[in-house]
Nucleic acid binder design. Structure first.
Lengths: 149, 149
DNA sequence: TACCATTTACTTGTGCGCAATTGAATAATA
DNA sequence: TATTATTCAATTGCGCACAAGTAAATGGTA
């Protein structure tokens, strides 16, 4: 009777766990910095898109950020409440929700620009390592998304 | 008047975002597999530790899995409810909660052993890439944890 | 035009994640 | 011993995350 091999179930053999833990720790590192701006991490990445694009549909945000409407809708409402964005229905297609960056939201950009280098410093990787991590996570992400369709 | 450089705020220049998105997508990929076992991802990683160790304190689980008690306590209660683990106070130190794997929980291991290779296949990385991703995420994790203390 | 399918967004329910607070047990120290 | 500090766990509150279900607008087709 051969003994079953459970090695694959060892936490130390799983890449999923450090990835999961690292992602959580990363969001935690953002905490103090984002608190100054009264933003959560999810609100922050929405704002990042808005700072780049000024205007976007809710659908575009959901797709780009890999967020469900169940997550995105309340996030957008909070950002509107904070007057960083506006939410209005598109005229051509009443289903679409048009999100626009407000002046208030635009101002926030200057208070956020110092954050990325701080986080990079926390992670303490070399440039090559950052690039490698970037490529690997995007590759895995692409592969997993293909499986879904 | 020099124009401010906002490049670091571009989503495409952030390693944090793909890491965050990849982690979420990964947990989502586990979904269908874990559903067969009636487990969530967090419950699953707790079980992984228990499958390896049979006995652990709540504190050890929290530290090893980087989980807060606010997260861990209800998770452990659910796993106890499902009779996969038992929870009892330690005799020597009444503060400590001793978690033990039950027979029911041990059985689950056989139904879980096929999952890791499925997930690895979903991610679609080469062995070298898996190893690199493993090293990089652990390195970043270690570095970030040092900053906290 | 009338009917059906798809798209977009919202809502509800459940669980994760964490900060902050509390309480009990233990350890450390005057 | 009495006092104080620390540790471990639970609780509360808030927001994220997502599945499932619903509704309205649009597009496609008989």
């Amino acid at each position: 009777m051969k003994k079953k091999n459970y090695d694959s179930l060892k936490l130390s053999n799983q890449v999923c766990f450090p990835l999961y833990a690292c992602s959580k720790e990363l969001v935690r590192q953002y905490g103090p910095f984002l608190k100054e701006l009264d933003l959560t991490y999810t609100q922050y990445i929405v704002m990042m898109v808005m700072w780049e694009n000024e205007v976007a549909s809710s659908r575009e945000l959901a797709e780009y950020l890999h967020l469900d409407y169940g997550t995105l809708t309340p996030v957008l409402k909070r950002l509107e409440q904070a007057s960083y964005i506006s939410r209005e229905r598109s005229a051509e297609d009443e289903r679409l929700l048009t999100i626009k960056l407000t002046d208030e939201g635009r101002k926030l950009k200057d208070r956020a620009v110092h954050i990325p280098p701080c986080i990079a410093e926390c992670m303490g990787l070399t440039m090559d390592e950052f690039r490698a991590l970037y490529e690997l996570t995007y590759k895995a992400l692409r592969n997993m998304e293909e499986k879904n369709n």
